[in-house]
Simulated assay, not measured.
Amino acid sequence: MIVMSIAGVDPSGGAGIFADLKTFQAIGVYGTGIVTALTSQNPYEFFSTQPVSPEYIEEQIDSVMDAYEVEFIKTGMLYSPEIIKLVAEKVKEYDLKAVVDPVMVATSGGNLTKEDIADAFNKYLLPKSILTTPNVSEAEKLSGININNKEEAIKATELIDCNCFITGGHLDGINVINVNNEITVKKQDLIETENLHGSGCNLSSAITAYLAKENSLMDSCFKAMDYVYNGIKNGNYGTLIAKI
Protein backbone atom coordinates (compact mmCIF):
# COMPACT_ATOMS: atom_id res chain seq x y z
CA MET A 1 0.00 0.00 0.00
CA ILE A 2 1.66 3.19 -1.22
CA VAL A 3 0.35 6.67 -0.42
CA MET A 4 1.54 10.19 -1.15
CA SER A 5 1.89 13.45 0.73
CA ILE A 6 2.07 16.69 -1.24
CA ALA A 7 3.12 19.28 1.30
CA GLY A 8 5.81 21.53 2.72
CA VAL A 9 8.89 20.65 4.75
CA ASP A 10 9.01 21.55 8.44
CA PRO A 11 12.64 21.21 9.57
CA SER A 12 11.55 20.58 13.16
CA GLY A 13 9.83 17.39 11.97
CA GLY A 14 6.54 17.99 13.75
CA ALA A 15 4.47 19.02 10.75
CA GLY A 16 4.50 18.79 6.97
CA ILE A 17 5.95 15.92 4.96
CA PHE A 18 8.23 14.64 7.73
CA ALA A 19 5.24 14.26 10.07
CA ASP A 20 3.15 12.68 7.33
CA LEU A 21 5.78 10.06 6.54
CA LYS A 22 6.10 9.14 10.22
CA THR A 23 2.34 8.74 10.49
CA PHE A 24 2.17 6.65 7.32
CA GLN A 25 4.85 4.35 8.70
CA ALA A 26 3.22 4.08 12.12
CA ILE A 27 -0.08 3.01 10.57
CA GLY A 28 1.61 0.56 8.23
CA VAL A 29 1.66 2.06 4.73
CA TYR A 30 4.56 3.19 2.55
CA GLY A 31 4.69 6.96 2.13
CA THR A 32 6.06 9.05 -0.72
CA GLY A 33 6.51 12.81 -0.40
CA ILE A 34 6.23 15.65 -2.90
CA VAL A 35 7.81 18.89 -1.63
CA THR A 36 5.87 22.09 -2.35
CA ALA A 37 7.88 24.47 -0.17
CA LEU A 38 10.69 24.70 2.33
CA THR A 39 10.01 26.47 5.60
CA SER A 40 12.03 27.75 8.52
CA GLN A 41 9.95 27.07 11.62
CA ASN A 42 9.72 25.20 14.87
CA PRO A 43 6.77 24.40 17.14
CA TYR A 44 6.88 27.89 18.65
CA GLU A 45 7.85 30.29 15.86
CA PHE A 46 7.53 30.61 12.09
CA PHE A 47 10.29 32.41 10.17
CA SER A 48 9.92 32.10 6.40
CA THR A 49 8.76 30.07 3.39
CA GLN A 50 10.62 29.24 0.19
CA PRO A 51 8.20 27.76 -2.36
CA VAL A 52 9.09 25.20 -5.02
CA SER A 53 8.14 26.02 -8.61
CA PRO A 54 4.98 24.38 -9.99
CA GLU A 55 7.06 22.86 -12.79
CA TYR A 56 9.33 21.07 -10.34
CA ILE A 57 6.38 19.93 -8.23
CA GLU A 58 4.86 18.44 -11.37
CA GLU A 59 8.11 16.61 -12.16
CA GLN A 60 8.20 15.18 -8.63
CA ILE A 61 4.63 13.89 -8.89
CA ASP A 62 5.20 12.39 -12.33
CA SER A 63 8.42 10.69 -11.21
CA VAL A 64 6.65 8.95 -8.30
CA MET A 65 3.62 8.00 -10.37
CA ASP A 66 5.93 6.56 -13.03
CA ALA A 67 7.28 4.06 -10.51
CA TYR A 68 4.45 3.36 -8.06
CA GLU A 69 0.74 2.65 -8.06
CA VAL A 70 -0.72 5.33 -5.79
CA GLU A 71 -4.44 5.69 -5.15
CA PHE A 72 -4.75 7.78 -1.98
CA ILE A 73 -2.93 11.06 -1.36
CA LYS A 74 -3.06 13.89 1.11
CA THR A 75 -2.21 17.50 0.52
CA GLY A 76 -0.88 19.97 3.04
CA MET A 77 0.71 23.34 2.38
CA LEU A 78 0.27 24.13 -1.31
CA TYR A 79 1.33 27.78 -0.97
CA SER A 80 -0.20 29.37 -4.09
CA PRO A 81 -3.24 29.20 -6.40
CA GLU A 82 -0.91 28.03 -9.18
CA ILE A 83 0.24 25.04 -7.14
CA ILE A 84 -3.32 24.21 -6.09
CA LYS A 85 -4.43 24.25 -9.73
CA LEU A 86 -1.52 22.00 -10.71
CA VAL A 87 -2.29 19.48 -7.96
CA ALA A 88 -5.96 19.43 -9.00
CA GLU A 89 -4.89 18.65 -12.57
CA LYS A 90 -2.69 15.80 -11.35
CA VAL A 91 -5.50 14.41 -9.19
CA LYS A 92 -7.65 14.23 -12.32
CA GLU A 93 -4.83 12.92 -14.56
CA TYR A 94 -3.94 10.02 -12.27
CA ASP A 95 -7.44 9.44 -10.84
CA LEU A 96 -6.17 10.04 -7.30
CA LYS A 97 -8.34 10.13 -4.19
CA ALA A 98 -7.24 13.23 -2.29
CA VAL A 99 -7.63 14.15 1.37
CA VAL A 100 -7.05 17.91 1.53
CA ASP A 101 -5.70 19.58 4.64
CA PRO A 102 -6.22 23.21 3.54
CA VAL A 103 -3.18 24.56 5.36
CA MET A 104 -3.03 28.35 5.47
CA VAL A 105 -1.44 29.32 8.80
CA ALA A 106 1.16 27.49 10.88
CA THR A 107 0.34 26.42 14.42
CA SER A 108 2.97 28.92 15.55
CA GLY A 109 1.09 31.72 13.79
CA GLY A 110 2.99 32.27 10.54
CA ASN A 111 1.16 32.84 7.26
CA LEU A 112 2.18 29.90 5.11
CA THR A 113 0.47 30.84 1.87
CA LYS A 114 -0.31 33.60 -0.57
CA GLU A 115 -3.61 35.47 -0.51
CA ASP A 116 -6.69 34.09 -2.32
CA ILE A 117 -5.70 30.57 -1.35
CA ALA A 118 -9.22 29.67 -0.14
CA ASP A 119 -10.73 30.68 -3.48
CA ALA A 120 -8.26 28.43 -5.28
CA PHE A 121 -9.08 25.47 -3.04
CA ASN A 122 -12.80 25.98 -3.70
CA LYS A 123 -12.38 26.47 -7.44
CA TYR A 124 -9.81 23.84 -8.35
CA LEU A 125 -9.07 21.17 -5.75
CA LEU A 126 -11.97 20.56 -3.38
CA PRO A 127 -14.48 19.58 -6.10
CA LYS A 128 -12.03 16.83 -7.19
CA SER A 129 -11.26 15.57 -3.66
CA ILE A 130 -12.86 13.02 -1.36
CA LEU A 131 -12.43 14.94 1.91
CA THR A 132 -11.12 18.19 3.36
CA THR A 133 -10.06 18.58 7.00
CA PRO A 134 -10.06 22.30 7.90
CA ASN A 135 -9.77 23.70 11.39
CA VAL A 136 -12.33 26.35 12.33
CA SER A 137 -10.32 29.24 10.92
CA GLU A 138 -9.75 27.46 7.62
CA ALA A 139 -13.39 26.39 7.43
CA GLU A 140 -14.44 30.02 7.87
CA LYS A 141 -12.28 31.03 4.90
CA LEU A 142 -13.55 28.17 2.74
CA SER A 143 -17.24 28.63 3.60
CA GLY A 144 -17.33 32.41 3.92
CA ILE A 145 -19.17 32.33 7.27
CA ASN A 146 -18.16 32.78 10.90
CA ILE A 147 -18.12 29.65 13.05
CA ASN A 148 -18.77 30.04 16.77
CA ASN A 149 -20.78 26.93 17.58
CA LYS A 150 -21.81 23.47 16.39
CA GLU A 151 -24.72 24.73 14.28
CA GLU A 152 -22.51 27.16 12.37
CA ALA A 153 -19.91 24.43 11.83
CA ILE A 154 -22.57 22.17 10.37
CA LYS A 155 -23.70 24.98 8.07
CA ALA A 156 -20.11 25.54 6.95
CA THR A 157 -19.71 21.88 5.96
CA GLU A 158 -22.82 22.24 3.80
CA LEU A 159 -21.34 25.27 2.01
CA ILE A 160 -17.99 23.63 1.21
CA ASP A 161 -18.00 21.68 -2.08
CA CYS A 162 -16.43 18.50 -0.69
CA ASN A 163 -16.95 15.99 2.09
CA CYS A 164 -15.76 17.95 5.11
CA PHE A 165 -14.31 17.24 8.55
CA ILE A 166 -14.07 20.41 10.66
CA THR A 167 -11.75 19.67 13.54
CA GLY A 168 -12.85 20.68 17.01
CA GLY A 169 -9.68 21.99 18.60
CA HIS A 170 -11.03 25.56 18.47
CA LEU A 171 -14.66 24.55 19.01
CA ASP A 172 -14.61 23.08 22.51
CA GLY A 173 -13.64 19.67 21.14
CA ILE A 174 -16.65 19.40 18.83
CA ASN A 175 -15.69 17.69 15.56
CA VAL A 176 -18.19 18.00 12.71
CA ILE A 177 -18.02 15.53 9.83
CA ASN A 178 -20.17 15.77 6.70
CA VAL A 179 -19.80 12.76 4.40
CA ASN A 180 -22.25 12.37 1.54
CA ASN A 181 -24.50 14.97 3.21
CA GLU A 182 -24.76 12.93 6.41
CA ILE A 183 -23.69 14.90 9.49
CA THR A 184 -21.79 13.27 12.34
CA VAL A 185 -20.85 15.26 15.45
CA LYS A 186 -18.28 13.76 17.80
CA LYS A 187 -16.99 15.58 20.85
CA GLN A 188 -13.60 14.84 22.36
CA ASP A 189 -12.20 16.09 25.63
CA LEU A 190 -9.64 18.83 25.11
CA ILE A 191 -6.17 18.10 26.46
CA GLU A 192 -4.18 20.83 28.18
CA THR A 193 -0.92 20.67 26.26
CA GLU A 194 1.49 22.56 24.03
CA ASN A 195 1.94 19.43 21.90
CA LEU A 196 -0.34 20.57 19.05
CA HIS A 197 2.24 21.35 16.37
CA GLY A 198 1.36 19.29 13.29
CA SER A 199 -1.89 17.86 14.65
CA GLY A 200 -3.76 18.74 11.45
CA CYS A 201 -1.05 17.17 9.30
CA ASN A 202 -1.18 13.99 11.35
CA LEU A 203 -4.96 13.82 11.13
CA SER A 204 -5.15 14.07 7.35
CA SER A 205 -2.22 11.70 6.82
CA ALA A 206 -3.75 9.17 9.23
CA ILE A 207 -7.06 9.32 7.36
CA THR A 208 -5.17 8.72 4.10
CA ALA A 209 -3.30 5.76 5.56
CA TYR A 210 -6.46 4.14 6.93
CA LEU A 211 -8.20 4.62 3.57
CA ALA A 212 -5.29 2.83 1.88
CA LYS A 213 -5.83 -0.03 4.33
CA GLU A 214 -9.36 -0.42 2.95
CA ASN A 215 -11.30 1.32 5.70
CA SER A 216 -14.36 3.35 4.77
CA LEU A 217 -14.10 7.13 4.78
CA MET A 218 -16.04 7.46 8.03
CA ASP A 219 -14.11 4.67 9.76
CA SER A 220 -10.86 6.26 8.57
CA CYS A 221 -11.94 9.57 10.14
CA PHE A 222 -12.78 7.94 13.46
CA LYS A 223 -9.57 5.91 13.60
CA ALA A 224 -7.52 8.97 12.69
CA MET A 225 -9.22 10.96 15.45
CA ASP A 226 -8.14 8.34 17.97
CA TYR A 227 -4.61 8.26 16.53
CA VAL A 228 -4.19 12.03 16.83
CA TYR A 229 -5.83 12.17 20.27
CA ASN A 230 -3.38 9.58 21.59
CA GLY A 231 -0.51 11.40 19.87
CA ILE A 232 -1.44 14.67 21.57
CA LYS A 233 -1.97 12.95 24.90
CA ASN A 234 1.30 11.01 24.82
CA GLY A 235 3.41 13.44 22.79
CA ASN A 236 4.56 10.74 20.39
CA TYR A 237 3.21 11.27 16.89
CA GLY A 238 4.67 8.79 14.45
CA THR A 239 5.73 6.32 17.13
CA LEU A 240 2.26 4.92 17.73
CA ILE A 241 2.28 1.48 16.15
CA ALA A 242 -1.29 1.05 14.94
CA LYS A 243 -2.88 -2.33 15.61
CA ILE A 244 -5.94 -1.70 13.44
Score class of each variant (00 low, 15 high):
155 K>S: 04
63 S>C: 13
174 I>D: 08
50 Q>C: 01
179 V>A: 10
180 N>A: 11
118 A>D: 07
236 N>T: 14
207 I>N: 06
178 N>K: 11
111 N>T: 13
220 S>I: 09
174 I>K: 09
86 L>Y: 08
172 D>N: 15
155 K>E: 10
74 K>Q: 09
65 M>N: 07
198 G>T: 12
145 I>Y: 09
86 L>V: 02
44 Y>F: 08
233 K>Y: 06
205 S>C: 12
23 T>Q: 11
57 I>M: 06
77 M>E: 02
175 N>R: 02
190 L>I: 15
231 G>V: 02
191 I>W: 13
222 F>H: 14
148 N>H: 07
229 Y>Q: 01
169 G>M: 09
230 N>T: 11
25 Q>M: 02
60 Q>C: 06
77 M>W: 07
162 C>Y: 03
6 I>V: 14
143 S>N: 04
166 I>G: 00
92 K>V: 10
49 T>H: 00
33 G>A: 15
237 Y>N: 12
87 V>H: 09
137 S>L: 15
199 S>T: 15
210 Y>K: 02
155 K>Y: 00
230 N>Y: 02
67 A>E: 13
118 A>I: 14
162 C>N: 05
134 P>D: 03
66 D>K: 14
179 V>H: 05
182 E>V: 15
94 Y>M: 06
191 I>V: 14
188 Q>Y: 10
22 K>A: 03
5 S>T: 15
131 L>F: 10
215 N>Y: 14
180 N>M: 07
184 T>I: 15
180 N>W: 03
140 E>S: 02
70 V>Y: 11
100 V>L: 12
77 M>A: 04
72 F>N: 07
216 S>G: 12
219 D>Y: 08
182 E>N: 15
1 M>S: 13
186 K>A: 04
236 N>D: 14
195 N>Q: 09
34 I>L: 12
227 Y>L: 08
115 E>L: 13
39 T>W: 06
195 N>S: 12
204 S>E: 05
17 I>H: 10
177 I>N: 02
68 Y>C: 10
178 N>G: 00
211 L>M: 04
148 N>V: 01
67 A>H: 03
118 A>W: 12
232 I>T: 11
179 V>Y: 09
52 V>T: 05
114 K>Y: 13
206 A>E: 04
38 L>I: 15
213 K>F: 07
87 V>W: 04
77 M>R: 09
157 T>D: 00
6 I>S: 07
127 P>R: 04
175 N>P: 05
160 I>G: 04
234 N>I: 05
212 A>D: 14
17 I>T: 06
114 K>R: 14
214 E>I: 01
231 G>D: 05
207 I>G: 04
241 I>A: 09
194 E>T: 12
37 A>H: 04
65 M>Q: 11
73 I>W: 10
172 D>C: 00
129 S>K: 10
31 G>Y: 14
79 Y>R: 11
98 A>E: 14
26 A>E: 01
18 F>E: 15
77 M>T: 04
20 D>E: 09
133 T>H: 13
183 I>G: 03
56 Y>F: 15
228 V>S: 05
201 C>K: 12
127 P>Q: 06
